[in-house]
Computed example of a mutant assay.
Amino acid sequence: MKPLLTVAAVLACIFASTFLILKLSGVLTVDDIEYFLQSASDINPLYVAALVIAILFADLFIAVPTMTVTLLSGYFLGAVVGGVSALIGMMFAATTGYIISRKFGPSLLYRIYKDEQKLSEMRTIFGRHGAFVLLICRAAPILPELCCCLSGATKMPFIRFILYFSIGTVPYAFIASYAGSISTLSNPKPAILTAIIVSGGLWLVWFFFLKITNNSKPVNNDITSA
């Protein structure tokens, strides 16, 4: 498990650095996002949908508050249109991350780990646990982008990747969007409760998953040729 965690940590640092840069520079804040969406809503709801998609796609390259954007999408567009818009943005980012990492990821993995045996172990571990990780990847910021990149870099079959990522992401998008649609400035309680319950629940699953996998036996690298 150690090689996979090492690569995950390196990629997480890369994504986290974009969040810190934006946070410290004040270039893009939650208030800015809300202002942009409000301005777009005053012109045409289609602009809101396009902006939501663009912001969530940008999450692949710069860390943005996905839950907040999805809640706002539901608030401005309604549960269905808001959910679809958020989902398109998330899926677009995920697919792009997978494709880029599938093409260029192996060279990055080799830069971090030059030991072919370690790389083989990492692919085996992600092949064994990757599906479940994709299901719960919305548990924490940065984790979805990280999982998409690892899926591509370890050459997980695309159909398998998109299936499990979708199972974990579709409910997330529509639940958050619905919560945003029934929230108001005077009553933000549905949005707040949804953010706490969904994020907290997924985080607990992620926490126990890490405990279980860390306590499991190491992968046997003695592979017998067929």
Rank of each mutant, 00 (worst) to 15 (best):
A153T: 01
H129L: 10
G89E: 03
P106G: 04
I112W: 04
A93P: 04
A140M: 12
L146W: 06
I88N: 06
R111T: 07
M90V: 04
L150F: 10
M90N: 10
P157M: 14
T154P: 09
G130I: 04
I100W: 10
S151L: 09
R102M: 12
F132Q: 00
G97W: 04
L135A: 09
M122Y: 02
L108S: 08
M156C: 05
I136N: 03
G89R: 00
D115H: 11
Y110K: 14
C147L: 05
T96D: 01
R128A: 11
V133G: 00
K118P: 02
F126P: 01
G105P: 08
C149H: 08
K155F: 05
P144S: 13
A94V: 08
I100E: 11
E121V: 09
T124M: 15
K118S: 01
P106R: 08
T154G: 03
T154H: 09
E145T: 14
C149W: 11
C147Y: 09
E121S: 08
L108C: 06
L143V: 15
C137F: 04
R123H: 14
G97C: 03
Y98L: 07
Y98D: 02
S101W: 08
F92Q: 00
I112T: 06
I125R: 09
A139F: 11
V133N: 02
T154Q: 11
L143I: 14
K114I: 00
I142G: 03
A139G: 12
E121F: 02
M122K: 04
L146C: 02
C147M: 12
L143H: 04
I136E: 00
S101T: 00
G97Q: 12
R102Q: 14
G130H: 08
F132P: 10
I88W: 01
M91T: 11
K118D: 10
T95V: 14
P141G: 12
C137V: 08
T95S: 10
C149Q: 13
F92C: 07
F92H: 02
A86S: 14
A94C: 11
A94D: 07
G127Y: 00
E121Q: 14
L87W: 01
M90G: 03
R102S: 14
L119I: 14
L119Y: 01
R138H: 07
S101V: 08
F126V: 06
P157T: 00
G152H: 11
T154K: 10
S101A: 15
